[in-house]
């Protein structure tokens, strides 16, 4: 993995003539985990897709890119809001999709290891149609980790998981992605409180930077600072509606 760059996005977005958000000023510090929190439909996924160069149908006025000025192409791993598994590939093939598409030989056994870490060892030969929604989402997470990129964009990566698995996967992701520049879109204040080095709240009217504790991530779910931050984030979200 190359040194992770910081990311920035300054400007506003419209869909047709209708303003979507902005003007906003988003800065993602290099090597840090940023959570972007907000209600559905405010444009969180759009911001994430802009970084991945996938925001079709949206006109963006402004600039975005990496702090080192080099193009982001080839340095991003994306976990979209939908799991986007290929129904004709089994789990191992799905997890190594990136290497397959680039005609590279994937590091041996890495796909198996990652599938084991997301708790799907016994399903490794199955196809996505044979899995539950939560299991599918974990395959998508493994595929994203497999990419081993300095910049990682996660769009509601734990939304389909039960509470216990969700906490486990948050721990796993925090461990695997330590030192990378992460943009994590979520609508769960508790999740943002556990994981964010930096927490941004996007509402219909503005982008607010909520101070986050300096403690290491993932923070324990039952710590006072996490519970307190979770409550403050929820209040913040409710204020702006």
């Amino acid at each position: 993995m190359t040194t992770p760059p910081g990311l920035f996005l300054r400007g506003s977005a419209r869909i047709d003539a209708k303003p979507l958000f902005g003007p906003v000023d988003v800065t993602l510090p290099a090597g840090r985990w940023t959570c972007l929190l907000g209600p559905s439909g405010v444009g969180k996924s759009t911001i994430l897709k802009l970084f991945a160069d996938l925001a079709t149908g949206v006109s963006f006025d402004g600039t975005f890119g990496s702090s080192d000025g080099a193009p982001l192409a080839g340095r991003i791993a994306l976990m979209a809001q939908e799991d986007l598994l290929m129904p004709w590939l089994d789990l191992r093939q799905n997890v190594s999709l990136g290497a397959r598409l680039r005609r590279e030989r994937p590091p041996s056994d890495l796909a198996e290891t990652l599938l084991a870490e997301v708790g799907l060892t016994e399903h490794i030969r199955k196809h996505p149609a044979e899995l539950s929604g939560g299991q599918r989402q974990r395959v998508a997470l493994a595929r994203t980790l497999m990419e081993d990129r300095p910049v990682v964009l996660l769009d509601e990566p734990f939304s389909a998981l039960d509470a216990r698995t969700r906490a486990d996967m948050q721990d796993l992701a925090a461990d695997k992605l330590a030192g990378r520049t992460v943009l994590h879109v979520t609508h769960d204040p508790g999740e943002a409180a556990r994981l964010g080095h930096q927490i941004l709240v996007l509402t219909e009217t503005q982008l607010i930077k909520v101070p986050a504790p300096h403690s290491a991530i993932p923070r324990p779910v039952d710590s006072a600072e996490v519970l307190d931050l979770q409550a403050r984030l929820l209040n913040q979200l409710r204020q702006d509606s």
Partner: peptide, 19 residues
């Protein structure tokens, strides 16, 4: 082809022919 798949493949750096 669902655009999500195409987007993912593009981010992964796939060539047009591999896509």
């Amino acid at each position: 082809t669902p655009s999500g798949w195409l987007g993912l493949a593009q981010v992964m750096g796939a060539s047009k022919w591999q896509i």
